[in-house]
Amino acid sequence: MRIGFYAPLKPPDHVAPSGDRRMARLFIQLLRNLGHQVDILSTLRSYNRDGDAARETDTAMAAAREVERLGMAWQTDPATRPDLLFTYHVYHKAADYLGPALKQRFRLPYVIAEPSVAPKREHGPWAAGYAQAARAIHAADALLPITALDGVCLSAFAGAEKVHAFPPFLDPRPFAAAATERERHRATTAQRYGLAPERPWLLAVGMMRAGDKMASFLRLAEMLALTIDTDWHLLLVGDGPERAAVEQAFSFAADRVHFAGQLEGGELPGLYAACDLYVWPAINEAYGMALLEAQAAGLPVLSVDTRGVPDIVRHGETGWLTADDKPATLAAALSSLLGDAARRHSMAESAIQHVGTHLSMAAAQRRLQGIFAGLGLPA
């Protein structure tokens, strides 16, 4: 099939790295792996962080122009018209104005991956975005929620028959390969960052920006301050406008906290494999791609049982999820895990198997083939 792909929150070629951009690119790769031609419909960004009414109106007008542009192009050259519209990530802050209009005008099947609905946003600053996201969700032929929580809400909102659970995924091969060379990666990492190999190494990966990411960094610092008597190194990967604030938050252990900065994707598998435990409070995080990457490389995860995190981390099997994100709760779990190398090793092995079986690109391909077949589309 020829598939028209659209990501209203952040285009796949956006300069700023994020889990959202990563997931959009993975869906494109997934569709291409299945033999489909993928065309980016538009780079129009509908993201409205603050619910600004004028911005939403401008987006709607720009989208109408995009619909006309695409319509004229497809009428001029019918061979360029897609067989399927595929939109990634739709919610009240990033509504899809293209998909519903193009579906109606050209009678095309329409699929949304990672849709979500928050009825409390029906009124208030995001009312217009919520209404358009709702129109898109109702217009879609299939909804592919990333988390179980979103799936429950969507089933009640749009009908369970349209909802197909679709957990996040990745290509686990470079991560699994790195796990087989853990000692080599550990030696390289120790030399590069000045880490003591005999100490346990903690790892966290995230953009250093205001909001939820910063909240997680601050909570991580609070948690580690309570375990200052425990022997550990912490390696932080990421950068951003709040880098100085993050450095200040961890200044209590400056000799044990190492800042790696922003790394290229190819450098991460070896880093995950070299460390002993991935630590991240995941405050208001949908699920966390880094949690998935860590497990793929055999790095057990310490996080919180919140939102979509339990959809990818199996508590007690591939990691440990605390009941809340209080610093004392997290610190107690960290101390327990650092004192039990055998349990961490067991979790590491289970994590690699879990990702390979359930959260891999191959598993996602099988899942999507079944969904397309159910819609009467070529798989």
Rank of each mutant, 00 (worst) to 15 (best):
D255H: 14
L195Y: 09
R256F: 03
P241T: 07
E285W: 10
M223P: 07
A260D: 02
Y278Q: 10
W201C: 08
G211P: 01
F250V: 05
K326E: 15
A210K: 10
L291V: 06
P327S: 03
L271Q: 06
A244V: 13
R199H: 13
R256V: 07
Y193N: 00
E242L: 12
L203G: 08
G266R: 12
E242R: 15
L271E: 06
L234E: 09
G266E: 15
D239S: 15
G240A: 05
A331N: 08
L330I: 10
A249P: 01
I312L: 14
G288V: 06
V279Q: 07
Q295G: 10
Y278L: 14
A244E: 15
I228G: 08
A294G: 15
A249R: 00
T322S: 13
E198K: 07
K326I: 06
F217Y: 06
G319H: 03
K213D: 07
E293L: 03
G211I: 04
Y287G: 04
W232L: 06
F259C: 00
V246M: 00
L235N: 07
A225M: 14
A253C: 07
M214Y: 02
R219L: 14
L218E: 07
G319V: 00
A221L: 02
E285P: 11
G194C: 00
E198M: 04
L277H: 01
A282E: 13
I312H: 07
D229R: 15
A215P: 03
L263N: 01
D229P: 00
F217T: 08
E264I: 03
D239H: 10
N284L: 13
A260S: 06
D276L: 08
E247S: 07
L292W: 12
C275E: 11
A332Q: 15
D325Q: 14
L321D: 07
R243K: 06
L202K: 11
A210H: 09
P200M: 03
W232G: 02
A215I: 05
L218Y: 05
F250A: 01
A333H: 05
E267A: 11
A333G: 03
L271C: 04
A225C: 13
A225L: 09
L321N: 00
M289A: 13
G261P: 03
L291M: 12
A331I: 04
F259W: 01
A331W: 11
F250H: 00
W201Q: 10
G194D: 00
L321P: 12
A290L: 08
A221T: 03
K326P: 05
F217K: 01
D212A: 15
V301W: 09
L268W: 05
D212C: 09
E247G: 09
A297G: 08
A245K: 13
A290E: 12
F250I: 04
A297V: 12
G194P: 00
M223A: 15
Q262N: 10
H258M: 02
A282H: 09
L236N: 02
L203D: 09
G298K: 12
A290I: 11
A245Y: 02
D231S: 12
V301Q: 10
C275S: 15
D229S: 14
N284P: 05
V279I: 15
M214A: 04
F252M: 04
M289E: 13
F252C: 03
N284Q: 14
L334E: 02
K213R: 11
H258L: 00
V301S: 01
F250L: 04
F250T: 01
E293I: 03
M207K: 13
L291K: 06
H233N: 15
D239F: 13
P327W: 11
R243S: 08
G298N: 06
A196N: 14
W280T: 12
H233L: 05
